[in-house]
Design a binder for these strands. Structure first.
Lengths: 340, 340
DNA sequence: GCACAGACTGTGAGCGCTAACAACACCTCG
DNA sequence: CGAGGTGTTGTTAGCGCTCACAGTCTGTGC
């Protein structure tokens, strides 16, 4: 009831009074303005400490017109890839002095992305990173509020935004070529969910190599990134005679396939060679340790912030940039020369 | 140069002018105030649409004194547990109409947590969830700014904050008892990093059951959650004669141990039984599929928001609450009766 | 001794919004 | 028919901060 009871946190004016200066001088101390006498600064600092004063960034943002907050829109941050990317983004943002406001979408559709961007814009974020690897996210990026910089991660080539991505095609080529080099006649493929751009890139690279080598191109098996879908595809593959090499679109599905083969008594790599994609921390300890293609998600996160900050500095006269992070082939024990 | 060139986004006053009303009426429309004539509302809405107006939430927050943003402090969101928890938090927060501002710490020390809390407080978040499973995080929670509600996930009993956690002790008991029930003389343990509260809980539960059954208590082997550390511990265990059952503090280390045993020619579960903890999506497809204890991270996330919101509503006269999420034992193929 | 630069500090306005109150129209009812 | 609601709108005053500008107080050079 009594207003004295619910005492409000101290504001700049309180500090000023206590230190015997004007609120403006307090502001100068807080913003490291050069023209403040050392003795005055000390007095202000003491008052701040004594009162437990904390600057109200909301009021500051209202006048400076920037919040030092970046928005991140992502999809299922439970998956290792997005989680690592977002982690990289967050670290890079914070070391550049920015906060991160997260929106994780349950499903990626144009409306969802559009809404998320709208919310973030209302919040006044200074820039946005969209980790939206699905094709259907692209249209939403097209009509983003023009006054706020956006970087897409693994996004489409939707003209108007900067993009950071891993060279999926190249990664798939490395995997496929490795298998052909081991003497396999052809390579089967377990793919990811259809709408994903990465999935298309991996199929493209895989197909390229087979075509160039004049090998038969088996129909890719469908998957959804989950170990279970890899397991089911593996079961089907185990029943197909003559399969000796499989390129799987991610490590988790590769794990499922490994399990399926183990159950069917198909020995890896003696009878079938498997290559995954991602190089999750577990892959090295699969049975057998998985040969795979590493994506440097941390680098993707860092680069997305790098491009975003550049774009924020440049302002309007900014030409959109594209950065490609190279994948790296990691040979382990799940592949072997074809046994005659 | 010309100020007309860089046109500012429209503000409430622009909408008001266009609709021929006062800015206050626009505000009323935006806030769903009942007392606005339908015809007026329509005119305002039209003006908003036409101008592409978006409310400035920063200005709004300055006067309402809340931002509709929740802060989340977490540790290494690359790990499955924290990632899933944070995901659950984010979803629950958003469906309650809140944004989430993330801070992921690289290392958890008191200073780091304190800083993170300070930053978030400056940002004006309405509440904070701290996913800080280490003992060293507790002191920082003690001196959190008193005016802002905080919920700790897997945190210590640091008196002053609400806590959501999984019953680690119970989970460990389930795992250990299962192994004893299968006829194993005793159960070895590969533990997590020392500072973690969960680690202590799991050791406690494991030891309890062994003590109650009057079994010998082997020295726990150290680990750091990584598959590699599990692998190394597994290698050491494979060299110890008479080991028939191991309870591993998480699934990733269990994977490493599985790998170590495979390399040493120790068959699982025929010669050694293994139980993990967490039930990550991969566990079901390990070789062999891992018997483990499931933690419902999604529920943890949802509950933490639930408690936080309650606390925010209650305000000062709030007594701190504790919610415990039960773990669930999941039997699979990595355990078997001891072979005589 | 006075003009003048330079260092330091204070004053006023305003960012875009909401809350509180005032004002007005229109109705109802004794 | 005037007192008193009730619905609808406008006016004013901040929220806590920074920016632009105006002082004040030195010290320096001629």
């Amino acid at each position: 009831m009594s207003p004295s009871h619910e005492r409000r946190p101290p504001v700049m004016a309180d500090v000023a009074t206590k230190a015997g200066v004007s609120h403006q001088t307090v502001s100068r101390v807080l913003n490291d303005h050069p023209n403040v006498r050392a003795e005055t600064r000390a007095r202000v600092l003491a008052a701040i400490h004594e009162l437990g004063y904390r600057r109200n960034m909301v009021a500051r943002a209202l006048v400076t017109r920037h919040t030092r907050t970046l928005g991140v829109v992502s999809f299922d941050t439970t998956l290792y890839g997005p989680a690592s990317t977002v982690y990289g983004i967050e670290q890079a943002a914070r070391s550049a002095g920015y906060f991160v406001s997260m929106v994780s979408l349950k499903t990626i559709d144009t409306a969802g992305v559009r809404d998320a961007l709208g919310y973030l814009a209302e919040q006044g974020v200074d820039g946005i990173v969209v980790v939206a690897p699905q094709r259907s996210a692209a249209p939403a990026l097209a009509d983003v509020p023009t006054d706020i910089p956006v970087v897409a991660v693994e996004g489409g080539h939707s003209g108007d935004v900067s993009v950071v991505s891993v060279d999926q095609v190249h990664g798939a080529r490395l995997a496929t070529r490795h298998l052909l080099d081991l003497g396999h006649e052809t390579v089967w493929h377990i793919g990811g969910p259809p709408d994903w751009l990465e999935v298309e890139g991996r199929i493209e690279g895989w197909r390229d190599v087979l075509v160039a080598a004049g090998r038969p191109i088996p129909e890719p098996l469908p998957g959804d990134w989950s170990p279970r879908s890899g397991y089911q595809a593996g079961l089907r593959l185990a029943a197909v005679p003559g399969v000796t090499a499989v390129f799987v679109a991610n490590d988790q599905m590769a794990l499922g396939a490994l399990r399926a083969f183990a159950e069917r008594g198909v020995r890896v790599p003696e009878q079938i060679s498997i290559v995954g994609f991602d190089d999750i921390p577990e892959s090295e300890f699969f049975t057998p340790p998985l040969t795979t293609v590493r994506q440097d998600f941390g680098a993707v996160g860092r680069w997305s912030i790098e491009l975003l900050l550049r774009q924020m500095e440049a302002g309007a006269e900014w030409s959109h940039e594209r950065h490609v992070v190279p994948p790296r082939f990691v040979a382990r024990a799940s592949t072997a020369p074809v046994h005659p």
